[in-house]
């Protein structure tokens, strides 16, 4: 496995760690805009999860010969 594949894989794996360990976010304070930490922490991961998939895609394809992909 190339370093690129490993990095791309890690990027995809990060959200699993972030949201499957409730000990990390199971609290009310600090709140954000009235939302408990439990809620806004996971909301942020909804967005980060999408960004990480995109980042993984870019990392994995960065070394390939350009074949019509941006």
């Amino acid at each position: 496995m190339s370093a690129r594949t490993v990095v791309a894989g890690i990027l995809l794996f990060v959200p699993f760690v972030a949201v499957l360990i409730p000990q990390l976010f199971n609290k009310v304070e600090p709140t954000l805009g009235g939302l408990p930490f439990f809620v806004w922490y996971q909301l942020i991961w909804v967005v980060l999860g999408g960004i990480l998939v995109f980042a993984s895609y870019r990392v994995y394809n960065s070394g390939k010969v350009r074949g019509g992909q941006a």
């Binding site: 995809l12 794996f13 959200p15 699993f16 949201v19 499957l20 199971n26 439990f38 809620v39 996971q42 909301l43 991961w45 909804v46 999860g49 999408g50 990480l52 998939v53 993984s56 895609y57």
Partner: peptide, 20 residues
């Protein structure tokens, strides 16, 4: 209560799984 919010981590973990 909070247990019902599992649907949020559920759907966000769907993207890497679909992608792979």
């Amino acid at each position: 209560g909070a247990i019902g919010f599992f649907a949020v981590p559920y759907t966000l973990l769907v993207y890497p799984i679909v992608y792979v």
